[in-house]
Design a protein around this nucleic acid. Structure first.
Lengths: 254, 254
DNA sequence: CGAAACGTTGAAAGCTCTCAATTATGGTGG
DNA sequence: CCACCATAATTGAGAGCTTTCAACGTTTCG
């Protein structure tokens, strides 16, 4: 394994339900709601209220659905461990991957407007997450400005990220940007930015980057031959971060 | 002209400042904040407060900047008339168009998280808009749940829209989806869905759809030869909406 | 009227895709 | 523990779509 999970995934024995304070506080430091949860000077009751609308869900295994397209929107989810992809299948049967989610990131924010989940969310490995009732969050956020701001921030961030893939860039640039971005997000959670495991298949990567799976294979090989990365199965090491950044810059920079 | 502007653009003589109620109310029916502004049963004071944080800006002419990349984020804008593009220029000097904005739509929501505008916003023709101080909106929205919900909705919508261009589709499908989408958005504001004027250049369209300008020309010609549309300069008529929808479906449907 | 920007059209090159075959990996059951 | 199967990943060759480069026609506006 390229990195160690800091968040224990062995809470399978604990029944789903209200998070106990100890667990919740420990997790909150890496969670997307960290800023709201751990905000200083906060009324302890408010903090308790926020924790009370969280449910730790059971464990999801590879292939399990966190939610399905067109299901009524009820909750958003914070990743605790593992990786989830969001995707949808078009009428021609082709799968489009919208995003990959790492520990600490939020899923479901794009369901608020349509009031239904606009895509499927599928676990790529063993996943645990926190479920937040959205109606409850909305209510609470009117009394808790920090929470409201955090929601605004998270959503605004998502709007910006979406345009990452927008440009018409070469396959090499796309793959470089993908790996650099993944490394940066891992680093933000305390993992290694240069060594990690790809939980998703080459096909998933291809469907995310809008390339053919064969092209993903070829480009990974090409980057390795240029001594930019080292790939072994799903283990990846970024050998030359500067070189990779140079490739990815035109995508990540703007 | 393919459609009539319902919103007068001749307020250039009025000094920027607080919107008078008459104007504001008239506009609100087509504005993105309509739901919040015109919500029934609302405290008249709250409504007045919302209107008070709006400023009608002066007129922008073609090429004028509404805001510039990296400027500190202070306000979001609601389009009243005309068209604006948001774009950024990469280090190679190539322009990427992120979006086009029609009357009633909001600009600047992607600046909340970075706290700076992440792109330029440029008027494509004669533009008028309303400026909302964001800090003031945030404060007000804690007392005005409808406003908060409206903000959530608008942002969530933007997250979803961004994935419209994501797929790897043919140039024909992209152009068809672009025109159908534009028509639908015009229709949502009371204009014709099948006859309108493209305020942006072929190059802008190309930079938005990630095609070469020459390809845009060729595809428009191709669609016209198939009797799907009629193009004359920047005037467009969708002659066969069903056929165009069939082409665009795989992009717009999911 | 003339310059400059915009738009169109043609031909050749390049990148990625598709199709096909081969190799590697991981899980299952004997 | 190993054989076996299904899935995933890799590699090669040819086709297709879009891009690039270049030239020409058109519109706009000083």
């Amino acid at each position: 394994m390229g990195h160690e999970r800091r968040i224990p995934t062995d809470n399978s024995l604990a029944p789903p339900g209200i998070a106990d304070d100890g667990d919740a506080m420990a997790f909150c430091t890496t969670c997307a709601f960290g800023a709201a949860c751990t905000a200083e000077g906060y009324d302890k009751n408010a903090l308790r209220e926020l924790h009370c609308l969280v449910e730790h869900t059971g464990i999801y295994h590879e292939g399990d659905y966190v939610f399905r397209k067109n299901t009524p929107f009820t909750a958003i989810y914070a990743m605790r461990a593992g990786m989830v992809k969001t995707c949808l299948v078009d009428e021609r049967g082709r799968e489009h991957v919208l995003g990959f989610f790492l520990p600490g990131e939020m899923i479901g924010l794009n369901a608020i407007y349509p009031e239904r989940y606009p895509c499927d969310a599928i676990a790529l490995d063993t996943v645990t997450l926190c479920q937040f009732s959205f109606p409850a969050m909305v209510t609470l956020s009117t009394r808790m400005p920090t929470l409201q701001q955090q929601l605004f921030k998270l959503m605004s961030k998502d709007i910006g990220n979406a345009s990452l893939l927008a440009g018409d860039h070469s396959a090499d640039e796309r793959l470089a940007a993908f790996l650099i971005d993944l490394g940066a997000r891992y680093a933000a959670r305390g993992f290694s930015a240069t060594r990690f495991r790809l939980s998703m298949s080459r096909t998933d990567i291809a469907n995310y980057l809008h390339l053919a799976a064969e092209t993903v294979s070829r480009v990974l090989r090409r980057l390795q031959n240029q001594n930019l990365i080292h790939v072994s199965g799903r283990e990846v090491e970024i050998v030359d971060p500067a070189g990779m950044n140079a490739l990815a810059r035109c995508i990540l920079q703007p």
